[in-house]
Design a protein around this nucleic acid. Sequence first.
DNA 1: AGTGATCATGAAAGCGCTTCCACAGTGGAG
DNA 2: CTCCACTGTGGAAGCGCTTTCATGATCACT
Lengths: 343, 343
Amino acid sequence: MTSNGVRAGGSPTLDEVARVAGVSRATASRAINGGQRVSAHAQSSVDAAVRSLGYVPNPAARSLVTRRTDSIAVVVPEPDDRVFSDPFFARTLRGVNRVLGESDIQLVLLLARPGASSERTLRYLTNRHVDGAIVVSHHRDDGLAEQLTRLDLPCVFGGRPWSGGDRVTYVDIDNTAGEREATQVLIDRGCQRIGTIAGPSDMTAAEDRLAGWREAMSAAGMRDDAVEHGDFTEDGGQRAAEALMAAHPDLDGLVVASDLMASGALKVLAASGRRVPDDVAVVGYDDLGVAERTTPALTTVRQPVEEMTERATRLLLEQIDGRSAGRPMRVIIPPTLIRRDSA
Amino acid sequence: MTSNGVRAGGSPTLDEVARVAGVSRATASRAINGGQRVSAHAQSSVDAAVRSLGYVPNPAARSLVTRRTDSIAVVVPEPDDRVFSDPFFARTLRGVNRVLGESDIQLVLLLARPGASSERTLRYLTNRHVDGAIVVSHHRDDGLAEQLTRLDLPCVFGGRPWSGGDRVTYVDIDNTAGEREATQVLIDRGCQRIGTIAGPSDMTAAEDRLAGWREAMSAAGMRDDAVEHGDFTEDGGQRAAEALMAAHPDLDGLVVASDLMASGALKVLAASGRRVPDDVAVVGYDDLGVAERTTPALTTVRQPVEEMTERATRLLLEQIDGRSAGRPMRVIIPPTLIRRDSA
DNA sequence: AGTGATCATGAAAGCGCTTCCACAGTGGAG
DNA sequence: CTCCACTGTGGAAGCGCTTTCATGATCACT
């Protein structure tokens, strides 16, 4: 069956292309991959053969020898409902995809099973199933940064990792500056007593924002003791706001570390009869779609998520191509203040 | 270097495992893959060798011979901003991932470049880079269904495809029944004049919902001429609502084909001083997070997106394993009415 | 005309794995 | 005691591709 000419079933192989084109397999291979050292004549007959046979190279065979898979992984360790309900996630994917669209590299989504350890994910990466990885940390670290550096797999973090931040390349948004600016809005508008609803303390983004709030407060000589933690969800924001207003009924400014939590806080304020921004001014964080839909619309800090992931992806591709020096890099992107009605 | 013993760099190969375990490569391979026809003694020495060397099989080499890649694609043809801002997308991924988590299969995300034809995507699938594909159509078909069936690649559609629906397996939510039920809510509450904001007519889901509205209206002996089309976005809903209310100022009921559009419609109604639900009752569609955040909260139809994609994924895995008969199947999932304040 | 350098080419050697096949050993049935 | 089915095993063939290497052929200069 396979002895000569075209095979019975299945896709055509390079061998057949070569035979049809009347060249050797080596020449056919060269012609297909960029055409270095191939005569115009050979090139065109290979092209014709490829077209007529509908040849597509077998990626497994190719990557067996090139040691390239032409795909990268987007790793989301321990995703929970939050990750999925968060526009952050979709935007991340879009940013990555946009850059990948320029090359012929595909995207493998690695969502660690909730509960299960990251063992399987790590195995997948160890396997060199992909050429590199983008880790959207977004969570407590799990030592993933260390394990990945040990793997010696090209890898870039989106968002500062918890530890190993100096040994790994990452792109982050300047959360501290963002929250500092947000806080300043309330200070400038004359708020006397400003509290904050911070994010979960196992995320660097949340911690950095809290630090930003602290910085702005102490720079203005104001007390920074009205702090409550939420979990970045609307319900969590609601609960935190209730606790915060109960403990500090005199608050006239609220810096909330996410728009979703701010939305919950707005409900609490409305229920207690406080007007926003007149009685209590509120600033959120994210501007990923929720902020413009609340009542009143939130003044907030816009996270350039797609820009961040685009940068991360480009850095990764450079690392894979060996274009980067190999030493860890750090890119920090400034966020933008968006003014609406809540402050 | 490679002549004997352990290699200089790189990962260990099966050869080395075999050598260390004192068995042949064939036996080592068997021991690693399930251990059929392997003595307990050989098995344990291979296991030990694998552990001590930290051996992980090379997936490219394996799939070169097995013709399996242990990965499936989630195909989103021509995604635009809508796809990403839509929680639908994230939920889909979660549903797929949940099922995949049970096996050792990974997920490749294929987002066709906006603008670019699906040519690259199709090439990737033709390449047998993946064992199967889930197509979240969500869009006009592009003949993708036909092209995929011609490819003879296991494949399941999430949502009824535009054409070829009888030759391809798909899982859909019963949009017609859902919208019928939603419309019935307004009829039952005594609305006299009911209009609808339908989705874009290039999506089957939108068309099916419109059909459901028509069915309920004609069953109740009511006129079904107050129709406006939106594009499933909030702004689109707003524009459609303006047009609709201008053309039919007497409407006292509004069936909107998506919550996001309904949110836009609510703004228009509020701006024109109409109370919801007292002056105009409104029902939305989706219940994917937006409905509970509008004012008033939307009565809507919940789409079990994750259930849908889970089913789709299972069907795909069956097809890949050859467990399914090979003839196209069709699964229709009923949606659920969620009552809130808008109707 | 002679000398290298450059170019296009094909033979062949793998990449790391699975699987077919042949073979020896074992035990139970006749 | 023979025959046969079955089990565990290793040799070897290949999966489809890239890439090195050797080989002529071609070219631009002395």
